[in-house]
Amino acid sequence: MDRKIKWLLVILAGAFVFWFLYGQDKAKKTTTVNNNDSLKTSKQPQVTPKPDTLSQSERVSSSQPDSEVQSQSVDEKLEQWLVQIQDRRYSEDPTVEVSSLAMEFESCGNNNNDWLFTDKEPNEKQLQIKNLMDKHCKQLSADYPLLGNKENHPGLQIILHQFSTSTALGDYLQANQFATGGRLHTLEFSKGLLPLALKEKNAQMINMAEWISSFHIKNRLFEEQLIKGEHYEYLRSIQSIALTGLSCEFQDGITCSPSSRFMQDKCFDEEKFCGLDFKQWYQQAVSPGMDADIQILKTYFQGLVQP
């Protein structure tokens, strides 16, 4: 039970982070790489810039000194980001790439996973997983210095909307506000996100759809008639397992590794699962009827993908 309260706290913290990233309805801006600006490398990101949807006058007025400084630093930071994400891990779409990295960073604990054990010490095996998470986050911070840089946060929201998109998934992420308003809002966001994430074969975005939909126990990403019953705990469980299982197929199973968000939870609940990946856990943990329901859901979710 303690573990569930802690995850609730981190979900709320994550909600705050995502409100920062997506919460305000800012119009998309083009990513214009200024060739006169010094870039760290000569390699240009392979993006297709979207037309600027705002006229120059609608940008932050240069008559306001603070905003002008802010605008300049946004451009600089944008350039830095584009340099950092030159070697894509998830997508050629910069919006999707940065969002996926942010989700990956969130899953390893955001360089601050001590909260997992605020009131007790991890045992040896749990400590190993925690250390793996730390190591993962540190590596991400080293590869993407701006990711873990707290000073960037006030500006990251503006920066993110500067990124262009080249996929429907990217458009969706840019266009939709992250819902903090209630159950239906988070459900609708997840429902729209999931098929796009599956189509793009993006493990982190599938993970995000699962995570956000789990905020409310009654959130179902599938038709009610598909799997009946009022046992919401069971329904949420099979949904989570089905989506995690689907995400395992992409990006070398990063969302299913022993230090993934799903397996961290299992390890910190029961020591015997520390060090196992999702598939190994599944073989030990899922009963025949539950497996049948999970397969039904996986087929259904895959069927949501538009060609």
Binding site: I227, K228, G229, E230, H231, S287, G289, M290, D293
Partner: peptide
């Protein structure tokens, strides 16, 4: 008939 779904009911029977 109300609370558990069919596959879950089968697991319970097992």
């Amino acid at each position: 008939d109300y609370f558990l779904n069919q596959n879950q009911w089968q697991d319970v029977q097992m």
